[in-house]
Structure formats: C-alpha cells, structure tokens
Amino acid sequence: MIVQMIWQSAAVVLGGLLLGLVYKGLDRKLAARMQGRIGPPLRQPFLDVRKLMVKENVVPRDAVPWLFHAAPILALVAAATVLLYLPLGGLAPVLTGRGDLILVLYLLAVPAVAMALGGFAAGTPFSAVGAQREIVMMMSYEFPLAVVVVGIVWRTATLGHSPAFSLAVVSGTPLWSLVGPLGVLGLALLLLCLLVVTPAELSKIPFDIPEAETEIAGGLLVEYSGVNLALFYLADALKTVAMGALVVALFIPYGLAGVFGLEGLVAGIVDVAFFLVKVFAVVFASVTVVRVAMARLKVDQVARGFWIPITTAALAGLVLLILDKAVVG
C-alpha cells in the first residue's frame, strides 16, 4: 500500500514537473507570438533547467547559508505535495483522505513563504525588498483565495455532500448545474476572483513585483544561481500546474469520458488529456494573456486592488451563494 503510494507520488510529481515545464515553454512561445516575436523553442525551459543544474551555487557573504539553501528545497517539496492532493483528470488524488482543501491552501502558500525566507536569508538590499513585497502580496491575495474556497465548499456541503472540505467530493460535484441563477452568478464571480488570484500566486506580470526585473533586478531571486535557482524554477513550474489544476477541480471538473460513454483505460486517457487541455486553457487565459497585456503594478496598487475590489467581489459571490441556498435550498 505504502510502496504503491510512493510509486504513484513519484509518477505524479515527475509528470507534474514535465507538464509544468511544457506549460512554461508554451507560455513563453505564445507570449512571444502575441508580441510579434518568434520566441524560444518549446524545449527551452528544459534546456534552462539543465544548464542551471550544472551551474555553481553562489552564496552571498552576508547570507544565512542553511536558510538560503533550505528555501528552494522547501518551495519545491511544498509545490510537489500540493499536486498529490489535487485530482488530475479522472485520477483521484494520490493522497485522498489524508488532507483536504485547507491543507492545499496552506501548501500553496509555502513556496511563497520559502521564497520570502530565501530572500531575507540572502541579506542584500534587493532581495530584502523583494521578500517584503512577497509578504505584502501574500497578505493581499490569500484572503480572496480563502473566500473562494470556502464559498465553494460551503455550497457543496449544503447540498448534502460530505466530508465537506475533501477535494475529491468538491470536484465530484460540479456546482454550476446544481445551483439556481443567483448561485451561477455567485460562482462566476468566484471564478473571476480565482483567475485574478492565479497570476498573483504565480508571481507573473502584473503581479511579478517580488521579482520585478527592471526595478529590483530579480528581487528575492537576485542572489540565487545554479541548482538553487533551478529548484525555484521547478517549484514555479509545479505551482503553475497546481494552480491550473485547482481552478479546474473547483470550477470545471467535467470529464469527456462520461459524455461519450467511454470506459476503462480509454476513458482514463481521454479524461487526463481533457484535463491537460483545461489546465492549459486556464494558464493561457489567466497567465499568458494577462502578462502580455498589462504593465507591472506597484505593490500598494496590488494590495489595494486585492483588499477592496477583489475581496468585495469574492464576498459578493459568497453572499450570492448564501442567497441561492435560501432560495433553492
């Protein structure tokens, strides 16, 4: 049992890494095409990782070495663990029943915390500024994210499904068709909020302020090089897949196999493929298009934006779901 679980986990993590790098390649290629450029070849992220892996780790003189080295490992492990809790297409999460959505929320926050820790541990002005910005960013987007998750979970629970916070249950119960018109509006608001939170969670333009290449030269990553940087890069790739999978699990958990009446292995393959397409669509819409269509915002603008409009929208979605419960039951 345990052995099987280890094998499955390893397969999921490796698959996630592969997928994450492919998505990164697609992201770069499509962003380049939207800007009228040719862009790097699809395999560029793989080449980048291979190159970084053979490069030296440089540790700044004023750094706290153990923390500086621990941060990227922590980020990668946390990002990998998230994947084990998320349903991947037709496949149930590897660690079903051993943790719930609340844990996923916490695990999603860990890579950001690790990056901030690494930034502080590097002990240089740019990385310290980057780390401060990362903390402010987290304080801004975590609340709307939590509201979205709570809204979905609560509405699922009121429909009589339990255990309440289990991802398998939530993704097994597509809410769109089970709620009334008010509920659909509420869900749409929550989906919108989650799509706005996604690039912030992944530190992409317009929310890439902790790294902000032209301002603070890479911010909390500025002192990282070699293997450590590669680990952060991989953690980012995994997080991209995880955020996409989370959006899919919460809002678009539909499969194709049921529609076409497929069974067995074919059904599994079709559902996994459809899942990959859905994740790609989410990443493309909320990361790639957004990052080429906007300028980088400032940290106070981001904080204000998340605390007021986005949180209000998320709370409005929640209220609509509550009203829907009162009407539909």
């Binding site: 939207m34 800007q35 890439d208 032209t214 080429v292 980088r296």
Partner: peptide, 16 residues
Amino acid sequence: AAHELGFDTLLHLSWK
C-alpha cells in the same frame, strides 16, 4: 519606457 513598466508587448510593438 514600456519595458521599464514591465509592459514588454508595448516595447515590441513600438520597436516594430
């Protein structure tokens, strides 16, 4: 200026 703002699309557009 667009690049300094992190808006690379405008950079490529104006240079195009």
